[in-house]
Design a protein around this nucleic acid. Sequence first.
DNA 1: CAGTATCCTGATTGATACTG
DNA 2: CAGTATCAATCAGGATACTG
Lengths: 125, 125
Amino acid sequence: MAVSLQVLRAQQPGALTTSCPGRVVLDHVTSKWGVLVLGALADGTLRWGELRREVDGISEKMLASTLRTFEADGLVERRAYPEVPPRVEYLLTPLGEDLAEAIAPLLTWVLAHAEEIVGRRAAQR
Amino acid sequence: MAVSLQVLRAQQPGALTTSCPGRVVLDHVTSKWGVLVLGALADGTLRWGELRREVDGISEKMLASTLRTFEADGLVERRAYPEVPPRVEYLLTPLGEDLAEAIAPLLTWVLAHAEEIVGRRAAQR
DNA sequence: CAGTATCCTGATTGATACTG
DNA sequence: CAGTATCAATCAGGATACTG
């Protein structure tokens, strides 16, 4: 049987309703840049500038905001080195690594089917 | 080895960059209500009203918008019955069911760790 | 290099009304 | 029942400039 909201709620009533903590976490992960930042860090530590380049198109503001959110969630760790010029590294915590594994199927699925989907949309008109 | 943007790009250069079709699809799926609508339909066919109740908090406008997007993507099918009162059912296509399986790990992970994450955030101040 | 500050647009929401 | 239309309000996100 498929994993659906109904199935999840059979075990955990009220799961992913407005008042459920899961909604907060899901909102962070599915925020505009959430999965891309997690996907970039899934390979290991990256510096601010590297991260900005990996997550193509992200603004500095949104990168900072996304990272602060994940830091507060305990998913990402920030390491600043008191050097000149400054160096700051970001990496997934064990919890973050666990989450990264959970979103991996989504990333691979999307890449495998993107052409098919976008192609159909184009053909519709 | 973890599935990361870097690993995906080793096989598919430019994967999930701004110009990649995958970004379009990923944006649809991780849109504000995307995974919740997919999660609700993962269990089977639902009517408009049922869907609205399952996806707690969604407005009619956003439900309509999300469904139209997924219809155009070929992920959701709409079946209207010419009856009085009208009846309309929504269900996942085979492609949509496949996607639902890919997001299942995310949903279960989020529910399993939400308390832990939200609790830590609260404790930080 | 690694950010913050500021301003501004556009997406999302809410409320309400209306229709086949 | 299953929507669409419209308007106002809010807020996430974008663009640009600046700093330790």
